[in-house]
Design a protein around this nucleic acid. Sequence first.
DNA 1: GTTGGTAGTCATGTTTTTTTGACTAATTGA
DNA 2: TCAATTAGTCAAAAAAACATGACTACCAAC
Lengths: 104, 104
Amino acid sequence: MTTNNLPQEEASCPAEGILKQLSGKWKPQIFRLALDGPVRFNGLLRQLPGSNKQSVATALKEMEEADILVKTVVQEKPLHIEYTLSEKGLAMVSVFRSMEGFLS
Amino acid sequence: MTTNNLPQEEASCPAEGILKQLSGKWKPQIFRLALDGPVRFNGLLRQLPGSNKQSVATALKEMEEADILVKTVVQEKPLHIEYTLSEKGLAMVSVFRSMEGFLS
DNA sequence: GTTGGTAGTCATGTTTTTTTGACTAATTGA
DNA sequence: TCAATTAGTCAAAAAAACATGACTACCAAC
């Protein structure tokens, strides 16, 4: 058999994939805002000073792909899109909480 | 008074600093190896295929500065240097464990 | 029909992170 | 004294992440 053709990360450190899903310049803050309720693209742009469309769009897409956020088209006027924490996302609160003990 | 001159990260998301201390291409794996006992510079280079001196040196320095690892000169022959998990580093195991529930 | 809000994409440029390869310097064993 | 092992540093290049500005497309109000 072949020895190991998984990306070395996953093989040697299970936490590494999760770490990647959560890190980046805007993801932690988006996560945090999503804890307070559904977030929206333009809303995030306003709530995250210094951010930009491209970066927010990328973060949202990656967090959706990682099944942290769920994207929903809301059939109300004005028609818009909401991003909500998935069950997995919600469960990840424990990860964030475990980090809050280390405020230097 | 001034409103808020902290780096926005720390202000808006406490976990963000810790996330930064743990993320990077090699830090999680170094952390994991350090769980099994003291690690050494050349040893890490051998144990982390694809790594390089510069990156390992930087990771070790940053993890030392973040008080995750403690650097010790071991007065044995051959005289060498060991990096051991600090108390804080050891406590951070809980952070890694909290992530291990999310293996996709 | 023009303005303004929704949610983006695309190409490009800048900045940060990571890698490469050469080099240093002390210690040890033959 | 020569070679190997220890643990790095340094400058430069490559790769990845992030930012900028222009543009698209849909819908609603005026």
